[in-house]
Simulated scan of single mutants.
Amino acid sequence: MSVGTDVSGGAHARGIGWRLACLDEVLQRGCGDARSCFDSRFVNLHMDNLSAFNHFHDWYMDTIQLSKERETRTLGLYLQDQRASVSFVGMNRCVLENLGLQNIVYAIEIIEPGTSGFGKAQQILAKAERWTDNQLGTVAYAFSTCGAELVVEFDSLEIESQAS
């Protein structure tokens, strides 16, 4: 199963182009605060995808991949007989801390601007160099029960899952 989001709620994220099309749609609807209205809609779409997997609570992280061509960080996760990959496409900044032999996810959350978690995530991301000049990144935090924690700024989220 592959989960992603596009303007019509389909099955594939389209990165910054999708976000710009979404922003244009929001502006045409006459949203008073286009940035706020747009960000809220974009974050809610990601939250729905993560919610389908209970935010990967208690899943084990066993692989971490980086694709320079797609500017993508991908986490390989498993829980019993299920495997999933979570890809942060259009990654701009990323910090990975406390990687160990056993890495158990507590939750992968989209961190919204204006929250205390967003401020903490921005402090962590300040350690990383930007890959691009793009300033429109969504921020996700992979909190751990044990081991690695990840904070990443990105454009779109792709989740693929399969039973082993």
Rank of each mutant, 00 (worst) to 15 (best):
G117H: 14
V139R: 02
T132N: 10
D155Q: 15
I111Q: 05
L96Q: 03
T115F: 05
A128K: 03
I104V: 06
A126Q: 14
I104M: 09
L136A: 15
G137D: 04
D155W: 01
L99E: 05
T115N: 06
A121E: 01
T132E: 06
Y141T: 01
C146R: 15
R93P: 09
A142M: 15
G100M: 02
A107Q: 15
N103D: 10
Q135H: 13
V139M: 02
I104P: 08
G119P: 04
S116A: 07
E109R: 12
Q102W: 09
Q102C: 01
L125Q: 04
F143Q: 02
F118T: 02
Q102A: 07
I124V: 09
G117Q: 08
I110E: 14
K120E: 15
W131R: 05
G119V: 11
L99F: 04
V105P: 11
R130M: 06
F154Q: 10
G137Y: 00
V139T: 07
Q123E: 11
V152M: 03
A107K: 10
A121C: 14
Q135R: 15
V105K: 06
A142N: 08
Y106A: 02
Q135C: 05
A128L: 12
L136K: 05
E97F: 01
A140Q: 13
K127C: 10
V95F: 03
L125F: 10
A142H: 01
N98E: 08
R130S: 15
Q135G: 03
G137L: 01
F118A: 02
I110M: 10
G100I: 01
E97L: 11
F154V: 04
A128G: 15
V152N: 00
E153H: 01
L101M: 07
V95T: 06
C94I: 12
V105S: 11
T138D: 05
Y106P: 02
A140P: 05
C94H: 00
Q122Y: 07
C146Y: 09
K127R: 15
L150R: 01
V95Q: 05
A140L: 03
I111D: 05
Y141P: 00
L125V: 04
G147V: 00
I111F: 06
Q135F: 04
S144E: 10
G119S: 10
I110V: 15
C94K: 02
N134H: 13
N134F: 13
D133P: 14
R130V: 02
T132S: 09
Q123K: 12
E112L: 13
A142T: 14
N134G: 08
E153G: 01
C94Y: 02
T132C: 09
W131P: 00
V105M: 10
L125I: 03
L125W: 07
L96M: 12
E129P: 11
A128D: 14
I104E: 14
L99N: 01
G147K: 02
C146D: 14
G114W: 07
Q122E: 11
S156G: 13
I124N: 00
I111P: 01
A128H: 04
L136M: 11
D133T: 14
N98P: 03
T115M: 09
S144M: 09
K120I: 12
A142Y: 08
F118V: 00
S144A: 14
C94M: 12
V139D: 03
E112R: 13
L99K: 02
F118P: 07
G100W: 00
S156F: 00
E112T: 08
C146K: 13
R130N: 14
R93L: 09
F154M: 12
Q123V: 05
V151K: 00
E97Q: 07
A128N: 11
D155I: 06
C146A: 09
A128Y: 06
